[in-house]
Simulated assay, not measured.
Amino acid sequence: MEPSQGEYTPTPEQRLRALDVETHLTDPSIKQAFVTPMFDIIAPRYDRFTRLFSFGMDGSWKREAMDAVRESARRLRPVQRALDLATGTGDLAVALARLWPGVHVDALDASPRMIDEATARLARRDADVASVVHPMVGDMMALPQASGSVDVLTASYAVRNVPDARGAVREMARVLRADGVLVTLDFYRPAFAPWRMLFLGYLQIAGDMVGYLWHRDPVVYGYIARSISHFMTEAEFSALLIDEGFEVVSVKRYLFGGIARHEARRRQVPSSSAPAV
Rank of each mutant, 00 (worst) to 15 (best):
I242A: 14
F246S: 04
R266D: 00
F246D: 12
H262Y: 11
K252A: 06
E244W: 12
R267L: 15
V249C: 11
S271C: 05
R267Y: 03
E244Q: 14
P270Y: 08
R253L: 10
A264S: 11
G257A: 09
S250E: 12
A274K: 14
R266W: 07
E247S: 12
P270E: 04
G258S: 01
K252M: 02
S271L: 11
L255G: 02
D243C: 07
Q268S: 11
A264Y: 05
V248W: 08
V251Q: 03
A260Q: 11
A260E: 04
S250T: 10
L240A: 03
L241D: 07
R261E: 13
P270G: 03
E244R: 05
K252Y: 01
K252I: 05
E244N: 13
R266S: 02
Y254L: 11
V269G: 00
V251T: 14
S250P: 00
A239Y: 03
A260H: 10
D243R: 14
S250G: 09
E263G: 13
A274R: 14
S250C: 00
Q268W: 11
L255S: 14
S273A: 12
A274H: 07
Y254W: 15
R267S: 06
P270H: 07
S250I: 02
I242C: 08
V248Q: 08
F237V: 01
R253A: 11
H262K: 06
A264Q: 00
P270D: 04
S273D: 13
F256E: 00
L240V: 09
E244V: 07
V269E: 13
L240G: 03
P270C: 06
V251G: 02
D243W: 05
E244A: 01
D243E: 15
A239V: 02
E247L: 03
L241I: 04
